[in-house]
C-alpha cells in the first residue's frame, strides 16, 4: 500500500511538469506586456524597455522556462509582479479560503445528494423518484453563476436575509455554498440513485433479507457500501471541479480565494502568480484523486488485494529468477 502511494506521488511529477509547460506556453503567447501594465500607459518607452530587461522578459522562451523550473525545484514559485511579494505568500493566504468553500460545498452536496439518491432508488418510479430526477436534471443543466445571481436577487436584494458578497462570517458562506453545490448535488444524486439501483437488484441483497436482516441495515450496510465506489468517484471529480470552478464563482460572490487571485493575476499579466496558482491547484487536484483512489481500497477488499499484489508479483518473480538460475546451473552440468 505504501509502495502504491509512493508510486502515485512520484507519478504526479510528470503531470505537474506537463501542466507547468502548457501554462508557461499559454502565458508566453498571451498578448499584453507586464512591464507596460506595471508602469501604466503613459510610461516612457525606454523605462518600459529597461523594466522588461530587468524582469527577464526579453529572454527566449526556453531560457525563461528553465530559469522558472530551476527556481521551482528550489521551492521558489517566483515573485508577484504587482505586489513584489513571493508568489507562495500570496497563494497561501488565498488557498485556504477556496479550499474551505470547496470542502463545505462537497460536504453539503454529499449530505443532501446521497440520501436523496438512495431514497429515489428505493422508491423507483414513485412520485419522489420523478421529482428527484427532474430536479437533478435542472441542477445539472442550470449554470451555477446564473443560479447564484437568482439567489442573490431573492435572498439579498428582495428579502435582505443574507449578504451578497465577501466572506466575513458564517452567513456569508450560505449563498455561495448553495449555488456552487447545486450541480454537484444533482450529479451525486443521480450517481447514488443509479448505483443503488444496480446494487439492490443483486442476489446478496436478497441473501441479507433472507437472513432476517432489518431493511434499514440491508440498505445501508449491504447496499450502500457496495454502491459507494461510483459515488466516491463523482465526489472526487466534483471536489476537484469546485476548486477549478472557483475561478467563476469567486467572481460572482467576491470571495477572496485563489480563483479570484488567478483572474486578477491574468488581467495584470502577472505570469508567476498565474503559473504558481495553476500548479498549486493541480497539485491539490492530484492529491484529491489519490485520496479517492485510496478510499476505493478502503471500501472494497477486491481493490485492496490488487494493491498488495505488487508484493506477491515480486515474490513470484524472485521465485522465477531462482528457478532460472537453477536451470542454468543444470545446463552447465
Amino acid at each position: 500500500m505504501l509502495r502504491y502511494i509512493a508510486k502515485r506521488i512520484f507519478l504526479m511529477i510528470p503531470v505537474l511538469l506537463g501542466i507547468s509547460f502548457v501554462i508557461f506556453l499559454l502565458m508566453y503567447f498571451t498578448p499584453g506586456d507586464p512591464a507596460q501594465m506595471i508602469l501604466g500607459d503613459m510610461a516612457d518607452k525606454e523605462d518600459v524597455e529597461a523594466l522588461r530587461e530587468e524582469m527577464g522578459l526579453n529572454d527566449g522562451f526556453f531560457e525563461r522556462y528553465f530559469r522558472y523550473m530551476g527556481d521551482l525545484l528550489r521551492g521558489d514559485l517566483g515573485t508577484s509582479y504587482t505586489t513584489k511579494l513571493p508568489v507562495w505568500d500570496e497563494i497561501s493566504v488565498r488557498l485556504p479560503v477556496t479550499a474551505k468553500v470547496a470542502f463545505f460545498v462537497i460536504l453539503f452536496a454529499v449530505i443532501i445528494g446521497v440520501p436523496i439518491g438512495i431514497l429515489s432508488a428505493v422508491r423507483q418510479y414513485t412520485i419522489i423518484d420523478s421529482i428527484t430526477r427532474v430536479l437533478a436534471l435542472l441542477g445539472i443543466t442550470m449554470p451555477s453563476f446564473w443560479f447564484a445571481l437568482l439567489l442573490v436577487l431573492l435572498f439579498s436584494v428582495r428579502l435582505g436575509w443574507l449578504p451578497a458578497s465577501g466572506l466575513y462570517g458564517p452567513s456569508y458562506y450560505i449563498l455561495p455554498i448553495i449555488s456552487i453545490s447545486a450541480a454537484s448535488i444533482a450529479i451525486i444524486t443521480r450517481t447514488a440513485r443509479s448505483s443503488m439501483l444496480e446494487v439492490i437488484r443483486q442476489d446478496y441483497i436478497d441473501t441479507a433479507r433472507a437472513k432476517g436482516q432489518k431493511e434499514r441495515v440491508v440498505l445501508f450496510k449491504h447496499a450502500l457500501l457496495n454502491a459507494l465506489i461510483p459515488i466516491l468517484t463523482v465526489v472526487g471529480i466534483q471536489f476537484a471541479g469546485s476548486l477549478g470552478g472557483a475561478v467563476v464563482n469567486e467572481q460572482v460572490f467576491a470571495i477572496p480565494g485563489i480563483g479570484k487571485l488567478m483572474v486578477d493575476a491574468i488581467k495584470a499579466r502577472n505570469y508567476p502568480l498565474v503559473t504558481g496558482s495553476v500548479l498549486v491547484l493541480s497539485l491539490l487536484q492530484s492529491m484529491v484523486n489519490l485520496f479517492i483512489d485510496l478510499l476505493y481500497a478502503f471500501v472494497d477488499p477486491r481493490i485492496r488485494s490488487q494493491y498488495s499484489r505488487d508484493k506477491k508479483k515480486k515474490k513470484a518473480l524472485n521465485g522465477a529468477v531462482t528457478a532460472n538460475a537453477g536451470m542454468a546451473a543444470n545446463k552447465r552440468k
Binding site: 442476489d203 441479507a208 433479507r209 433472507a210 437472513k211 472494497d300
Partner: peptide, 19 residues
C-alpha cells in the same frame, strides 16, 4: 427468516456480499 426457514440462492457467485 434465517431462523425458521432460510434460502439458498441460485448463483453463489453473486449471493455473497463482496465487501
Amino acid at each position: 427468516r434465517g431462523k425458521d426457514f432460510s434460502m439458498i440462492f441460485q448463483d453463489p457467485m453473486t449471493s455473497l456480499n463482496p465487501i
